[in-house]
């Protein structure tokens, strides 16, 4: 039995919208992983200044682990957190769905997890991240020219298919 559904991808704001919508239609709880981490850490800038990057990273990792403790929820989490230091292992008993954007479509970088100066920097390229997420995800949903409602339906179909096989 899966614990959660994790919707992952390289456009975090897009993922939030999709995941929230899927959660509403399934009457499941929606967890915004980035918001969760920020809530737990309260003031990351202060933490980095006072305690250093390594400490901040450790606290972020702890908070990411906290996300995985939810149950029966639809979770989004920035790929930046997901791929760092094998944090994806926290979600071993969750169903991972990768919403894939082609590189050319990612013209405006998602703000979250990339550009804040006081966040632990992410050093992977697009190709590396895409490869990693492809390996980790159970299902991949390609965004290319599709409406959001279509993406949501595809995600629900993935869930149905998964439940049938289980």
């Amino acid at each position: 039995m899966i614990k959660n559904v994790v919707i992952i991808g390289l456009n975090y704001e897009y993922n939030i919208e999709i995941a929230q919508s899927v959660a509403d239609s399934l009457e499941a709880y929606f967890l915004n992983g980035d918001e969760f981490v920020n809530y737990q850490l309260q003031n990351k800038k202060n933490m980095k200044e006072l305690c250093g990057v390594e400490y901040l990273k450790a606290q972020e990792n702890k908070a990411i682990k906290g996300c995985a403790e939810f149950e029966n929820s639809i979770i989004t989490i920035p790929s930046h957190y997901f791929l760092r230091d094998n944090q994806y292992k926290n979600f071993d008993n969750s169903l991972i769905i990768y919403i894939r954007f082609s590189k050319d479509k990612l013209t405006k970088q998602s703000k979250i997890g990339f550009v804040d100066e006081f966040i632990v920097p992410n050093l992977l390229t697009y190709a590396q991240k895409d490869l990693e997420l492809e390996k980790l995800a159970k299902y991949i949903v390609n965004v290319r020219n599709k409406k959001k409602s279509t993406i949501e339906d595809e995600i629900k179909k993935c869930l149905e298919e998964y439940c049938e096989h289980k």
């Binding site: 709880y29 969760f36 906290g66 029966n72 929820s73």
Partner: peptide
Amino acid sequence: YCVTRAIA
């Protein structure tokens, strides 16, 4: 978050 998780 701990609270809402517990209620869920």
